[in-house]
Design a protein around this nucleic acid. Structure first.
Lengths: 207, 207
DNA sequence: TAGATTGTTAATCGATTAACAATC
DNA sequence: TAGATTGTTAATCGATTAACAATC
């Protein structure tokens, strides 16, 4: 599943270049993975390919979007307009995944009212009024570790059922709320383990 | 492996609170995982626990650091002092993982010379001179998708063997260079799939 | 003793890999 | 026909889960 955005991103590039067909081998070679992996992943989407030619780029884009659930737009409220929040708002790739940052909140009065990448920063205290009974699908938490739980509580109180949490804490949420936690340091742990494994000549590390 | 930073972060908090022992059940409950998972993970580090009391917090911190390879400091050069780069530089948790951003580079003359979270931004053109034959261990790539490959080439030319790539492209590197790619959208794909699975009542999605 | 906790061994499950068949 | 490519089936591997033993 985590490879899907990469396939999609690559396919959109290829489409823009005017390429009509793509083979699993071509995608695999770009991503430095075995071509069987790419073929299996594509098979997951249920798309039938064309022997001798590969897969139609346009069809594969649609198939991946449907498989991941990106065919319909997803509305989001981003909380925390700091460096990380700004980075996400400026991440042009999210458009391809149909993720739309409908609201941006911050608690800092110095930030409220500013416009970041086309999004006006709203006061987090106004969240209930802004939502007005119609909560966005996803809450994206880009605040400090200390503030994260409180922000999560507010979002949940506002009716948000899905959280994407970039803070380095585990959130306490009701059982009907789903949290996707993004552990930035996780990648560094994997990398550090690879380094250790290379430099000691041992093969002890796995993902 | 990806859970290790979370254990470590939690343990450091507990240590600061003065707690001496921790049980696998306690860690698991905090992370909302099965306690068997936590126990297996701890077993991977090779640390022996104390029956009836659990694990010594200080010992477990050391064991995890050694297991992941975070006991020795890791030097890094961060390239791209934009929003994402700033966010990483401000991420106080990296200190706990012994990651030290020794150099920060950017190509934008408007950014060169600025100080971000205590790090002076250097001109990327000066990289060879700055390294002076002694390259940092890791290159952290926080530039645009377009610039990423070129930055990777420069880092590799400067002697860097390990790359942590936050750009949404797959890099082309020699076989002795290891790339850890951070796909921010990957978490969103997993979340979108969970949403789809919940809302359709189907169980089709996996990680 | 009873209870809490680690430690070990086996079973299950899913993802990855391999081998080969099908077909344009 | 030969070659490129998808599609399918089986084998392997590792992580997760389960069950139970050990012991402070």
């Amino acid at each position: 599943m985590r490879r899907m955005p990469t396939y999609l991103h690559r396919l959109l590039c290829l489409q823009q270049e005017g390429q009509l067909y793509v083979s699993s081998a071509e995608l695999a070679s770009y991503m430095n993975i075995d071509l069987i992996v790419a073929r299996k992943d594509i098979a997951m989407t249920g798309l039938a390919g064309h022997k001798r030619y590969g897969y139609k780029v346009a069809e594969l884009i649609e198939a991946i979007r449907c498989y991941v659930g990106w065919n319909n737009g997803t509305s989001a409220a981003l909380v925390g307009a700091g460096a990380l929040g700004s980075a996400l708002l400026g991440y042009s790739d999210f458009g391809a995944y149909n993720l739309c940052f409908e609201y941006v909140f911050d608690a800092d009065p110095a930030k409220v009212g500013k416009v970041i990448h086309g999004h006006e920063v709203l006061d987090i205290a106004d969240m209930p009024a802004v939502f007005g009974g119609e909560a966005p699908k996803i809450g994206v938490i880009c605040v400090s570790n200390q503030a994260a739980q409180q922000v999560a509580d507010s979002l949940i109180a506002g009716g948000v059922k899905y959280l994407w949490n970039f803070a380095n804490v585990c959130l306490n949420v009701p059982s009907d709320v789903i949290v996707q936690r993004e552990v930035i340091a996780g990648g560094f742990a994997v990398l550090a383990a690879k380094i250790k494994s290379v430099e000691t000549g041992q093969e002890t590390a796995e993902e």
